[in-house]
Amino acid sequence: MKARAFSYARPTTVVEALQTFAASGDDASYIAGGQSLVPALALRLQAPQVLIDIAHIPELRGIALQDGWLRIGALTRHCETLSDPLIARHAPLFHDAAPYVAHPAIRNKGTLGGSIALADPASEFPAMALAMGVELEIANLSGSRRVPADEYFIDLFQTAIEPGELLTAIHVPVVQPSHRWAFDELARRRGDYAIVGSGILADMRDELVAQIRLVLFGVGNTPVRAKRAEDALRGRQLDQSAIVAAQAALSDDLAPPDDEHTPAAMRIHLARVLLGRLLGRIAEVA
């Protein structure tokens, strides 16, 4: 279980990283924390000619408030997501999900940008990015652009990031006093990928659901916004009948994989249970 041979580059600026990638003839991989990439290399599922270590690029670091958005540098580690007070206050779903992301040692090395760039459909952070409606800052040699999360996740491990491009930061619209949120997941063991997980961000006005973003993960090729369930809740009080309606709508929102270990019917069932519990929690504090 040893990786195929590759050469190693360690750029110190984003532009240098992008140029290194271009010079490799696109046969390269960026590595940040490497907590998902290194196993893939060890198993020879991936075998780039060049490994570009972006962990030493200062531009990719930092957490700062900018005009109602929290800009989180792509190299922000999972453990910082847990400990940073700005994230806890302004991007609470990242903070709440962090303890569920793998184990302490993985969280010490893995990066938020790496997780969202990989876009594992069973991962917490990509789903929470979608739930909070973040924008992803993506750099290429022509410049930089921001892609809304709703347009970012395309298919299994496929995002708006084009080959050679680099995810440089995550911009989170800061939560408002009227916002309520909840996160939970059902995993067999602590730190495992969840069978089903969910993050919800709701804007509650006059005890009614004014807006809601309801995201599930582990249930498809990408994190999924349960839009029909959102529709079932919008404009309503979060009472039992609304919750039941949202749960019922889930089967139209989800088409989970059916495999030997976890039948699709089970994922839908668990998604409903989880949704009910999370909405119940939001209703309690609302």
């Binding site: 019917a265 069932h269 668990l270």
Partner: peptide
């Protein structure tokens, strides 16, 4: 006794 087997036993799925 996995969750899916227990849910099946309970008739939930």
């Amino acid at each position: 006794m996995t969750p899916s087997r227990i849910l099946k036993a309970l008739g939930r799925i």
